[in-house]
Design a protein around this nucleic acid. Structure first.
Lengths: 247, 247
DNA sequence: TGTGGTCAACTTATCATACCAGTTGGGAAA
DNA sequence: TTTCCCAACTGGTATGATAAGTTGACCACA
Protein backbone atom coordinates (compact mmCIF):
# COMPACT_ATOMS: atom_id res chain seq x y z
CA UNK A 1 0.00 0.00 0.00
CA UNK A 2 1.62 3.18 -1.18
CA UNK A 3 -0.41 6.28 -0.76
CA UNK A 4 1.85 8.57 -2.69
CA UNK A 5 1.79 6.42 -5.80
CA UNK A 6 0.00 7.60 -8.90
CA UNK A 7 -3.71 7.25 -8.55
CA UNK A 8 -5.89 5.27 -10.90
CA UNK A 9 -7.38 7.41 -13.61
CA UNK A 10 -11.08 6.93 -13.65
CA UNK A 11 -13.90 8.89 -15.10
CA UNK A 12 -16.20 10.13 -12.47
CA UNK A 13 -19.74 8.94 -12.98
CA UNK A 14 -22.44 11.54 -13.40
CA UNK A 15 -24.24 10.37 -10.30
CA UNK A 16 -21.00 10.75 -8.36
CA UNK A 17 -20.63 14.34 -9.52
CA UNK A 18 -24.23 15.02 -8.64
CA UNK A 19 -23.75 13.52 -5.19
CA UNK A 20 -20.69 15.62 -4.55
CA UNK A 21 -22.28 18.85 -5.64
CA UNK A 22 -25.40 18.27 -3.62
CA UNK A 23 -23.64 17.01 -0.51
CA UNK A 24 -21.29 19.94 -0.69
CA UNK A 25 -24.15 22.40 -0.83
CA UNK A 26 -25.73 20.73 2.17
CA UNK A 27 -22.53 20.58 4.19
CA UNK A 28 -21.81 24.24 3.41
CA UNK A 29 -25.35 25.10 4.47
CA UNK A 30 -26.38 26.45 1.08
CA UNK A 31 -29.31 24.12 1.55
CA UNK A 32 -30.19 24.48 5.19
CA UNK A 33 -31.82 21.89 7.44
CA UNK A 34 -35.53 21.85 6.76
CA UNK A 35 -35.17 23.24 3.25
CA UNK A 36 -36.64 21.19 0.44
CA UNK A 37 -34.18 20.16 -2.19
CA UNK A 38 -35.26 21.03 -5.73
CA UNK A 39 -37.41 18.32 -7.29
CA UNK A 40 -35.64 15.49 -9.04
CA UNK A 41 -36.72 16.68 -12.48
CA UNK A 42 -35.45 20.16 -11.66
CA UNK A 43 -32.14 18.82 -10.46
CA UNK A 44 -31.93 16.69 -13.57
CA UNK A 45 -32.19 19.85 -15.68
CA UNK A 46 -29.96 21.96 -13.50
CA UNK A 47 -27.24 19.33 -13.34
CA UNK A 48 -27.74 18.34 -16.98
CA UNK A 49 -27.93 14.64 -16.25
CA UNK A 50 -30.72 12.15 -16.57
CA UNK A 51 -33.05 11.64 -13.68
CA UNK A 52 -31.66 8.19 -12.90
CA UNK A 53 -28.34 9.74 -12.00
CA UNK A 54 -30.10 12.25 -9.76
CA UNK A 55 -31.94 9.44 -8.02
CA UNK A 56 -28.73 7.51 -7.46
CA UNK A 57 -27.16 10.59 -5.91
CA UNK A 58 -30.17 11.19 -3.73
CA UNK A 59 -30.18 7.65 -2.41
CA UNK A 60 -26.64 8.26 -1.28
CA UNK A 61 -27.55 11.56 0.34
CA UNK A 62 -30.27 9.73 2.19
CA UNK A 63 -27.87 7.08 3.32
CA UNK A 64 -25.48 9.74 4.58
CA UNK A 65 -28.22 11.26 6.71
CA UNK A 66 -28.18 14.44 4.64
CA UNK A 67 -31.74 14.30 3.31
CA UNK A 68 -35.03 12.75 4.30
CA UNK A 69 -36.94 11.06 1.51
CA UNK A 70 -40.71 10.63 1.34
CA UNK A 71 -42.57 9.35 -1.64
CA UNK A 72 -44.48 12.15 -3.27
CA UNK A 73 -42.87 14.95 -1.26
CA UNK A 74 -39.74 16.88 -2.02
CA UNK A 75 -36.62 15.63 -0.34
CA UNK A 76 -35.91 17.63 2.79
CA UNK A 77 -32.47 18.55 4.05
CA UNK A 78 -31.60 17.15 7.46
CA UNK A 79 -29.30 18.56 10.07
CA UNK A 80 -26.18 16.52 9.51
CA UNK A 81 -24.78 17.65 12.83
CA UNK A 82 -27.54 15.73 14.57
CA UNK A 83 -28.24 13.07 11.99
CA UNK A 84 -25.08 12.54 10.00
CA UNK A 85 -22.58 9.80 10.73
CA UNK A 86 -18.85 9.52 10.87
CA UNK A 87 -18.70 8.77 7.18
CA UNK A 88 -19.16 12.49 6.54
CA UNK A 89 -15.87 13.32 8.14
CA UNK A 90 -13.84 13.15 4.89
CA UNK A 91 -16.18 15.71 3.34
CA UNK A 92 -15.62 18.12 6.18
CA UNK A 93 -11.86 18.01 6.41
CA UNK A 94 -11.02 19.75 3.18
CA UNK A 95 -13.02 22.47 1.50
CA UNK A 96 -13.55 23.00 -2.18
CA UNK A 97 -10.35 24.95 -2.53
CA UNK A 98 -8.40 22.14 -0.90
CA UNK A 99 -7.84 24.00 2.35
CA UNK A 100 -7.79 22.11 5.64
CA UNK A 101 -10.44 22.95 8.16
CA UNK A 102 -8.50 23.45 11.40
CA UNK A 103 -11.41 22.74 13.70
CA UNK A 104 -12.06 19.45 11.95
CA UNK A 105 -8.38 18.55 12.21
CA UNK A 106 -8.43 19.24 15.94
CA UNK A 107 -11.60 17.24 16.34
CA UNK A 108 -10.08 14.28 14.59
CA UNK A 109 -6.91 14.43 16.65
CA UNK A 110 -8.96 14.58 19.84
CA UNK A 111 -10.95 11.58 18.81
CA UNK A 112 -7.82 9.73 17.85
CA UNK A 113 -6.55 10.38 21.39
CA UNK A 114 -9.78 8.93 22.76
CA UNK A 115 -9.66 5.78 20.67
CA UNK A 116 -6.02 4.91 20.14
CA UNK A 117 -5.21 4.10 23.77
CA UNK A 118 -8.14 1.70 23.99
CA UNK A 119 -7.33 0.19 20.61
CA UNK A 120 -3.83 -0.51 21.89
CA UNK A 121 -5.22 -1.88 25.15
CA UNK A 122 -7.64 -4.19 23.34
CA UNK A 123 -4.84 -5.45 21.14
CA UNK A 124 -2.70 -6.14 24.19
CA UNK A 125 -5.51 -8.18 25.71
CA UNK A 126 -6.36 -10.14 22.61
CA UNK A 127 -3.38 -10.04 20.28
CA UNK A 128 -0.96 -12.49 21.84
CA UNK A 129 2.56 -13.42 20.77
CA UNK A 130 1.69 -13.72 17.11
CA UNK A 131 0.65 -10.07 16.96
CA UNK A 132 3.69 -9.05 18.99
CA UNK A 133 5.91 -10.77 16.43
CA UNK A 134 4.23 -8.96 13.59
CA UNK A 135 4.59 -5.64 15.35
CA UNK A 136 8.25 -6.30 16.08
CA UNK A 137 8.87 -7.21 12.45
CA UNK A 138 7.21 -4.00 11.35
CA UNK A 139 9.27 -1.97 13.79
CA UNK A 140 12.42 -3.54 12.42
CA UNK A 141 11.29 -2.59 8.96
CA UNK A 142 10.63 0.94 10.15
CA UNK A 143 14.10 1.20 11.62
CA UNK A 144 15.56 -0.05 8.35
CA UNK A 145 13.50 2.52 6.43
CA UNK A 146 14.39 5.47 8.60
CA UNK A 147 15.67 7.49 5.69
CA UNK A 148 12.40 7.22 3.85
CA UNK A 149 9.77 9.26 5.65
CA UNK A 150 7.04 8.26 3.23
CA UNK A 151 7.66 4.60 3.91
CA UNK A 152 7.66 5.28 7.66
CA UNK A 153 4.28 6.90 7.30
CA UNK A 154 2.87 3.84 5.60
CA UNK A 155 4.41 1.53 8.18
CA UNK A 156 2.97 3.57 11.01
CA UNK A 157 -0.50 3.19 9.51
CA UNK A 158 0.10 -0.52 9.07
CA UNK A 159 1.11 -0.75 12.73
CA UNK A 160 -2.23 0.65 13.83
CA UNK A 161 -4.09 -1.44 11.31
CA UNK A 162 -2.61 -4.53 12.89
CA UNK A 163 -3.57 -3.35 16.35
CA UNK A 164 -7.16 -2.53 15.49
CA UNK A 165 -7.62 -5.71 13.47
CA UNK A 166 -6.56 -7.94 16.32
CA UNK A 167 -8.24 -6.24 19.24
CA UNK A 168 -11.55 -7.98 18.54
CA UNK A 169 -13.59 -4.79 18.63
CA UNK A 170 -15.66 -4.17 15.51
CA UNK A 171 -16.71 -0.67 16.52
CA UNK A 172 -13.09 0.43 16.90
CA UNK A 173 -12.32 -1.17 13.60
CA UNK A 174 -15.01 0.60 11.64
CA UNK A 175 -14.30 3.94 13.32
CA UNK A 176 -10.63 3.48 12.51
CA UNK A 177 -11.51 2.90 8.87
CA UNK A 178 -13.69 6.00 8.77
CA UNK A 179 -10.89 8.08 10.20
CA UNK A 180 -8.28 6.60 7.93
CA UNK A 181 -10.41 7.48 4.93
CA UNK A 182 -10.32 11.01 6.21
CA UNK A 183 -6.56 11.27 6.66
CA UNK A 184 -5.69 9.65 3.39
CA UNK A 185 -7.15 12.64 1.59
CA UNK A 186 -4.32 14.75 2.95
CA UNK A 187 -1.73 12.02 3.28
CA UNK A 188 1.04 13.97 1.64
CA UNK A 189 0.33 17.06 3.70
CA UNK A 190 0.63 15.02 6.88
CA UNK A 191 4.01 13.55 6.01
CA UNK A 192 6.27 16.36 7.25
CA UNK A 193 3.92 17.48 10.00
CA UNK A 194 3.73 14.10 11.73
CA UNK A 195 7.35 13.17 11.25
CA UNK A 196 8.06 12.92 14.95
CA UNK A 197 5.20 10.55 15.40
CA UNK A 198 6.32 8.31 12.58
CA UNK A 199 9.76 8.11 14.21
CA UNK A 200 8.40 7.42 17.67
CA UNK A 201 9.88 3.94 17.85
CA UNK A 202 10.04 4.09 21.63
CA UNK A 203 6.33 4.21 22.22
CA UNK A 204 5.51 1.90 19.35
CA UNK A 205 8.04 -0.51 20.80
CA UNK A 206 6.42 -0.16 24.20
CA UNK A 207 3.07 -1.03 22.68
CA UNK A 208 4.52 -4.11 21.00
CA UNK A 209 6.11 -5.16 24.30
CA UNK A 210 2.84 -4.64 26.15
CA UNK A 211 1.08 -6.74 23.52
CA UNK A 212 3.60 -9.53 24.06
CA UNK A 213 3.02 -9.35 27.80
CA UNK A 214 -0.73 -8.91 27.56
CA UNK A 215 -0.44 -5.70 29.52
CA UNK A 216 -3.41 -3.54 28.52
CA UNK A 217 -2.59 -0.71 30.91
CA UNK A 218 0.90 -0.26 29.54
CA UNK A 219 -0.33 -0.45 25.98
CA UNK A 220 -2.93 2.19 26.70
CA UNK A 221 -0.39 4.58 28.21
CA UNK A 222 2.12 4.13 25.41
CA UNK A 223 -0.66 4.48 22.83
CA UNK A 224 -1.72 7.78 24.33
CA UNK A 225 1.82 9.15 24.53
CA UNK A 226 2.35 8.20 20.92
CA UNK A 227 -0.72 9.89 19.45
CA UNK A 228 -0.24 12.96 21.60
CA UNK A 229 3.06 13.53 19.81
CA UNK A 230 1.20 13.83 16.55
CA UNK A 231 -1.55 15.88 18.10
CA UNK A 232 0.89 18.45 19.46
CA UNK A 233 2.70 18.64 16.15
CA UNK A 234 -0.52 19.26 14.28
CA UNK A 235 -1.59 21.84 16.81
CA UNK A 236 1.65 23.70 16.21
CA UNK A 237 1.18 23.49 12.46
CA UNK A 238 -2.38 24.79 12.76
CA UNK A 239 -1.29 27.73 14.86
CA UNK A 240 1.11 28.63 12.12
CA UNK A 241 -1.66 28.48 9.58
CA UNK A 242 -4.01 30.28 11.93
CA UNK A 243 -6.96 28.83 10.12
CA UNK A 244 -10.04 26.89 10.86
CA UNK A 245 -13.74 27.11 10.35
CA UNK A 246 -16.22 25.54 12.70
CA UNK A 247 -18.92 23.55 10.93
CA UNK B 1 -38.74 12.62 20.71
CA UNK B 2 -40.40 9.44 21.90
CA UNK B 3 -38.82 6.27 20.69
CA UNK B 4 -41.57 3.99 21.82
CA UNK B 5 -44.34 5.89 20.07
CA UNK B 6 -46.06 4.46 17.05
CA UNK B 7 -43.80 4.48 14.05
CA UNK B 8 -44.67 6.07 10.76
CA UNK B 9 -46.06 3.56 8.34
CA UNK B 10 -44.07 3.70 5.19
CA UNK B 11 -43.65 1.37 2.29
CA UNK B 12 -40.13 0.23 1.81
CA UNK B 13 -38.80 1.13 -1.60
CA UNK B 14 -37.62 -1.63 -3.86
CA UNK B 15 -34.12 -0.25 -3.97
CA UNK B 16 -34.09 -0.23 -0.15
CA UNK B 17 -35.06 -3.91 -0.09
CA UNK B 18 -32.41 -4.69 -2.65
CA UNK B 19 -29.79 -2.80 -0.63
CA UNK B 20 -30.68 -4.67 2.51
CA UNK B 21 -30.60 -8.07 0.92
CA UNK B 22 -27.30 -7.44 -0.75
CA UNK B 23 -25.63 -5.77 2.21
CA UNK B 24 -26.82 -8.57 4.41
CA UNK B 25 -25.29 -11.18 2.14
CA UNK B 26 -22.03 -9.28 2.17
CA UNK B 27 -21.97 -8.76 5.92
CA UNK B 28 -22.77 -12.43 6.52
CA UNK B 29 -19.97 -13.36 4.13
CA UNK B 30 -22.25 -15.10 1.66
CA UNK B 31 -20.48 -12.90 -0.85
CA UNK B 32 -16.91 -12.92 0.31
CA UNK B 33 -14.31 -10.19 -0.19
CA UNK B 34 -12.95 -10.42 -3.71
CA UNK B 35 -16.05 -12.20 -5.06
CA UNK B 36 -17.79 -10.54 -7.97
CA UNK B 37 -21.38 -9.66 -7.33
CA UNK B 38 -23.81 -10.93 -9.97
CA UNK B 39 -24.17 -8.51 -12.89
CA UNK B 40 -26.77 -5.78 -12.55
CA UNK B 41 -29.05 -7.38 -15.12
CA UNK B 42 -28.82 -10.66 -13.27
CA UNK B 43 -29.60 -9.06 -9.96
CA UNK B 44 -32.52 -7.29 -11.57
CA UNK B 45 -34.00 -10.66 -12.54
CA UNK B 46 -33.13 -12.42 -9.29
CA UNK B 47 -34.57 -9.63 -7.18
CA UNK B 48 -37.50 -9.07 -9.55
CA UNK B 49 -36.98 -5.33 -9.74
CA UNK B 50 -35.93 -3.10 -12.57
CA UNK B 51 -32.30 -2.34 -13.11
CA UNK B 52 -32.63 1.24 -11.88
CA UNK B 53 -33.46 -0.01 -8.42
CA UNK B 54 -30.48 -2.35 -8.52
CA UNK B 55 -28.23 0.52 -9.49
CA UNK B 56 -29.52 2.67 -6.66
CA UNK B 57 -28.84 -0.15 -4.22
CA UNK B 58 -25.36 -0.67 -5.60
CA UNK B 59 -24.45 2.98 -5.31
CA UNK B 60 -25.29 2.69 -1.65
CA UNK B 61 -23.24 -0.48 -1.26
CA UNK B 62 -20.37 1.39 -2.83
CA UNK B 63 -20.80 4.27 -0.47
CA UNK B 64 -20.81 1.90 2.49
CA UNK B 65 -17.47 0.45 1.40
CA UNK B 66 -19.05 -2.92 0.69
CA UNK B 67 -18.35 -3.12 -3.05
CA UNK B 68 -15.89 -1.66 -5.49
CA UNK B 69 -17.39 -0.37 -8.71
CA UNK B 70 -15.59 -0.22 -12.06
CA UNK B 71 -17.23 0.65 -15.32
CA UNK B 72 -17.37 -2.42 -17.49
CA UNK B 73 -16.35 -4.89 -14.80
CA UNK B 74 -18.53 -6.67 -12.31
CA UNK B 75 -18.83 -5.09 -8.92
CA UNK B 76 -16.40 -6.71 -6.50
CA UNK B 77 -17.08 -7.29 -2.83
CA UNK B 78 -14.69 -5.49 -0.50
CA UNK B 79 -13.55 -6.46 2.95
CA UNK B 80 -15.77 -4.34 5.12
CA UNK B 81 -13.62 -5.03 8.15
CA UNK B 82 -10.80 -3.11 6.48
CA UNK B 83 -12.80 -0.76 4.28
CA UNK B 84 -16.16 -0.27 5.89
CA UNK B 85 -17.02 2.68 8.10
CA UNK B 86 -18.87 3.18 11.31
CA UNK B 87 -22.14 3.54 9.44
CA UNK B 88 -22.20 -0.25 9.13
CA UNK B 89 -22.52 -0.71 12.84
CA UNK B 90 -26.35 -0.75 12.87
CA UNK B 91 -26.31 -3.60 10.37
CA UNK B 92 -24.04 -5.66 12.55
CA UNK B 93 -25.79 -5.30 15.85
CA UNK B 94 -28.88 -7.32 15.09
CA UNK B 95 -29.13 -10.32 12.83
CA UNK B 96 -31.94 -11.26 10.54
CA UNK B 97 -33.80 -13.03 13.30
CA UNK B 98 -33.60 -9.96 15.51
CA UNK B 99 -30.99 -11.42 17.83
CA UNK B 100 -28.35 -9.19 19.34
CA UNK B 101 -24.76 -9.92 18.49
CA UNK B 102 -23.01 -9.94 21.87
CA UNK B 103 -19.55 -9.18 20.53
CA UNK B 104 -20.90 -6.14 18.71
CA UNK B 105 -22.65 -4.99 21.88
CA UNK B 106 -19.41 -5.30 23.82
CA UNK B 107 -17.53 -3.45 21.12
CA UNK B 108 -20.00 -0.62 21.19
CA UNK B 109 -19.90 -0.36 24.97
CA UNK B 110 -16.10 -0.29 24.90
CA UNK B 111 -16.11 2.46 22.34
CA UNK B 112 -18.67 4.38 24.30
CA UNK B 113 -16.31 4.18 27.29
CA UNK B 114 -13.53 5.58 25.11
CA UNK B 115 -15.55 8.49 23.78
CA UNK B 116 -17.97 9.52 26.50
CA UNK B 117 -15.35 10.76 28.99
CA UNK B 118 -13.77 12.98 26.35
CA UNK B 119 -17.15 14.16 25.13
CA UNK B 120 -17.95 15.22 28.69
CA UNK B 121 -14.52 16.84 29.05
CA UNK B 122 -14.92 18.80 25.81
CA UNK B 123 -18.35 20.00 26.92
CA UNK B 124 -16.91 21.11 30.23
CA UNK B 125 -14.27 23.13 28.41
CA UNK B 126 -16.55 24.71 25.89
CA UNK B 127 -20.10 24.55 27.21
CA UNK B 128 -20.21 27.30 29.80
CA UNK B 129 -22.99 28.32 32.13
CA UNK B 130 -25.68 28.16 29.48
CA UNK B 131 -25.03 24.49 28.92
CA UNK B 132 -24.86 23.87 32.64
CA UNK B 133 -28.31 25.47 33.01
CA UNK B 134 -29.72 23.24 30.32
CA UNK B 135 -28.23 20.15 31.91
CA UNK B 136 -29.57 21.11 35.30
CA UNK B 137 -33.02 21.65 33.85
CA UNK B 138 -32.89 18.27 32.22
CA UNK B 139 -31.80 16.63 35.46
CA UNK B 140 -34.72 18.25 37.24
CA UNK B 141 -37.01 16.86 34.59
CA UNK B 142 -35.44 13.45 35.01
CA UNK B 143 -36.02 13.55 38.75
CA UNK B 144 -39.62 14.54 38.16
CA UNK B 145 -40.03 11.67 35.69
CA UNK B 146 -38.48 9.00 37.90
CA UNK B 147 -41.52 6.78 37.72
CA UNK B 148 -41.35 6.65 33.93
CA UNK B 149 -38.33 4.67 32.88
CA UNK B 150 -39.00 5.23 29.20
CA UNK B 151 -38.96 8.97 29.69
CA UNK B 152 -35.75 8.67 31.69
CA UNK B 153 -34.18 6.82 28.82
CA UNK B 154 -35.06 9.61 26.42
CA UNK B 155 -33.81 12.26 28.81
CA UNK B 156 -30.52 10.43 29.27
CA UNK B 157 -29.99 10.45 25.53
CA UNK B 158 -30.90 14.12 25.41
CA UNK B 159 -28.32 14.78 28.12
CA UNK B 160 -25.56 13.30 26.01
CA UNK B 161 -26.85 15.01 22.91
CA UNK B 162 -26.45 18.33 24.64
CA UNK B 163 -22.95 17.46 25.76
CA UNK B 164 -21.74 16.35 22.36
CA UNK B 165 -23.42 19.26 20.58
CA UNK B 166 -21.66 21.83 22.71
CA UNK B 167 -18.21 20.36 22.96
CA UNK B 168 -17.19 21.81 19.62
CA UNK B 169 -15.86 18.52 18.27
CA UNK B 170 -17.39 17.47 14.98
CA UNK B 171 -15.76 14.05 14.98
CA UNK B 172 -17.26 13.18 18.35
CA UNK B 173 -20.56 14.49 17.14
CA UNK B 174 -20.72 12.36 14.03
CA UNK B 175 -19.46 9.27 15.86
CA UNK B 176 -22.10 9.83 18.52
CA UNK B 177 -24.78 9.98 15.83
CA UNK B 178 -23.54 6.77 14.25
CA UNK B 179 -23.66 5.02 17.58
CA UNK B 180 -27.05 6.41 18.47
CA UNK B 181 -28.44 5.08 15.20
CA UNK B 182 -27.20 1.72 16.31
CA UNK B 183 -28.77 1.72 19.78
CA UNK B 184 -32.09 3.04 18.66
CA UNK B 185 -32.70 -0.20 16.79
CA UNK B 186 -32.90 -1.97 20.14
CA UNK B 187 -34.13 0.93 22.19
CA UNK B 188 -36.88 -1.00 23.92
CA UNK B 189 -34.57 -3.89 24.70
CA UNK B 190 -32.15 -1.50 26.39
CA UNK B 191 -34.75 0.07 28.66
CA UNK B 192 -34.71 -2.44 31.51
CA UNK B 193 -31.08 -3.41 31.06
CA UNK B 194 -29.71 0.11 31.42
CA UNK B 195 -32.09 1.22 34.14
CA UNK B 196 -29.31 1.88 36.63
CA UNK B 197 -27.54 4.11 34.19
CA UNK B 198 -30.67 6.10 33.44
CA UNK B 199 -31.10 6.69 37.16
CA UNK B 200 -27.50 7.66 37.73
CA UNK B 201 -28.33 11.23 38.72
CA UNK B 202 -25.20 11.48 40.82
CA UNK B 203 -22.73 11.19 37.99
CA UNK B 204 -24.87 13.13 35.56
CA UNK B 205 -25.11 15.84 38.20
CA UNK B 206 -21.36 15.75 38.63
CA UNK B 207 -20.93 16.24 34.89
CA UNK B 208 -23.31 19.21 34.94
CA UNK B 209 -21.40 20.69 37.86
CA UNK B 210 -18.08 20.17 36.11
CA UNK B 211 -19.51 21.89 33.03
CA UNK B 212 -20.53 24.87 35.14
CA UNK B 213 -17.04 25.03 36.60
CA UNK B 214 -15.26 24.37 33.34
CA UNK B 215 -13.55 21.39 34.95
CA UNK B 216 -12.74 18.96 32.14
CA UNK B 217 -10.98 16.46 34.38
CA UNK B 218 -13.95 16.07 36.70
CA UNK B 219 -16.33 15.81 33.78
CA UNK B 220 -14.19 13.10 32.23
CA UNK B 221 -14.11 11.04 35.41
CA UNK B 222 -17.83 11.36 36.04
CA UNK B 223 -18.54 10.54 32.42
CA UNK B 224 -16.50 7.38 32.63
CA UNK B 225 -18.10 6.25 35.89
CA UNK B 226 -21.50 6.85 34.35
CA UNK B 227 -21.05 4.83 31.18
CA UNK B 228 -19.30 2.05 33.04
CA UNK B 229 -22.52 1.48 34.95
CA UNK B 230 -24.30 0.73 31.71
CA UNK B 231 -21.40 -1.31 30.43
CA UNK B 232 -21.39 -3.56 33.47
CA UNK B 233 -25.14 -3.98 33.30
CA UNK B 234 -25.01 -4.99 29.68
CA UNK B 235 -22.14 -7.36 30.35
CA UNK B 236 -24.25 -9.09 33.00
CA UNK B 237 -27.19 -9.26 30.63
CA UNK B 238 -25.00 -10.76 27.92
CA UNK B 239 -23.61 -13.39 30.22
CA UNK B 240 -27.14 -14.42 30.95
CA UNK B 241 -27.86 -14.74 27.28
CA UNK B 242 -24.54 -16.45 26.73
CA UNK B 243 -24.68 -15.36 23.15
CA UNK B 244 -22.57 -13.53 20.68
CA UNK B 245 -21.03 -14.01 17.32
CA UNK B 246 -17.84 -12.35 16.24
CA UNK B 247 -18.02 -10.80 12.78
C1' DT C 1 -65.86 26.28 13.49
C1' DG C 2 -64.16 21.75 12.86
C1' DT C 3 -64.08 17.50 10.28
C1' DG C 4 -64.12 14.65 6.35
C1' DG C 5 -64.19 14.01 1.37
C1' DT C 6 -62.77 15.08 -3.36
C1' DC C 7 -59.74 16.60 -6.81
C1' DA C 8 -55.95 18.60 -9.50
C1' DA C 9 -51.26 19.43 -9.59
C1' DC C 10 -47.11 18.15 -8.11
C1' DT C 11 -43.79 14.91 -6.44
C1' DT C 12 -41.33 10.46 -6.00
C1' DA C 13 -41.06 5.41 -7.52
C1' DT C 14 -40.79 2.11 -10.99
C1' DC C 15 -40.46 0.30 -15.48
C1' DA C 16 -38.94 -0.82 -20.27
C1' DT C 17 -36.09 -0.04 -24.01
C1' DA C 18 -32.24 1.57 -26.31
C1' DC C 19 -27.68 3.10 -26.87
C1' DC C 20 -22.96 4.41 -25.14
C1' DA C 21 -18.50 3.40 -22.74
C1' DG C 22 -15.25 0.31 -20.57
C1' DT C 23 -13.34 -4.49 -19.56
C1' DT C 24 -11.86 -9.08 -20.50
C1' DG C 25 -10.32 -13.05 -22.69
C1' DG C 26 -9.62 -15.66 -26.81
C1' DG C 27 -7.77 -16.03 -31.28
C1' DA C 28 -5.00 -14.40 -35.07
C1' DA C 29 -1.05 -12.13 -36.90
C1' DA C 30 3.61 -10.52 -36.65
C1' DT D 1 6.31 -14.79 -27.51
C1' DT D 2 4.12 -10.45 -27.95
C1' DT D 3 0.81 -7.49 -29.80
C1' DC D 4 -3.44 -6.48 -31.82
C1' DC D 5 -8.24 -7.14 -32.80
C1' DC D 6 -12.78 -8.30 -31.73
C1' DA D 7 -16.92 -10.26 -29.61
C1' DA D 8 -19.21 -10.74 -25.52
C1' DC D 9 -19.99 -9.03 -21.36
C1' DT D 10 -20.35 -5.41 -18.04
C1' DG D 11 -21.54 -0.91 -16.10
C1' DG D 12 -23.30 4.02 -17.42
C1' DT D 13 -26.67 7.00 -19.43
C1' DA D 14 -30.85 8.48 -21.64
C1' DT D 15 -35.77 8.74 -22.71
C1' DG D 16 -40.52 8.31 -22.15
C1' DA D 17 -44.22 6.36 -19.80
C1' DT D 18 -47.06 4.85 -15.96
C1' DA D 19 -47.94 4.03 -10.95
C1' DA D 20 -48.06 5.62 -6.18
C1' DG D 21 -47.97 9.15 -2.72
C1' DT D 22 -48.42 14.18 -1.06
C1' DT D 23 -50.38 18.68 -0.60
C1' DG D 24 -53.46 22.32 -0.64
C1' DA D 25 -57.72 24.16 -2.17
C1' DC D 26 -62.44 23.70 -2.13
C1' DC D 27 -66.85 21.96 -0.66
C1' DA D 28 -70.36 19.76 2.25
C1' DC D 29 -72.04 18.62 6.62
C1' DA D 30 -72.65 18.58 11.63
Amino acid sequence: MTRHALDAVRKQSLSESAYRQLSDKILRNEYAPGDPLPAERELSEALQVNRGAVREAIKRLQQAGLVAVRHGSKHVVRDYLSEGGLELLPNLLVDKQGRLNGAVVRSIMAMRSSLAPDIAAAAAKKGGKALAEELDALLSQMRADQKDLKALQDHALAFWQKLVARGGNIAFRLAFNSMTKTYTQVWDVLTPVLEKEFRDFDNLGAIAKAVRQGDAGRAREAGLRHVEIGRSALERALRKLDGGDAP
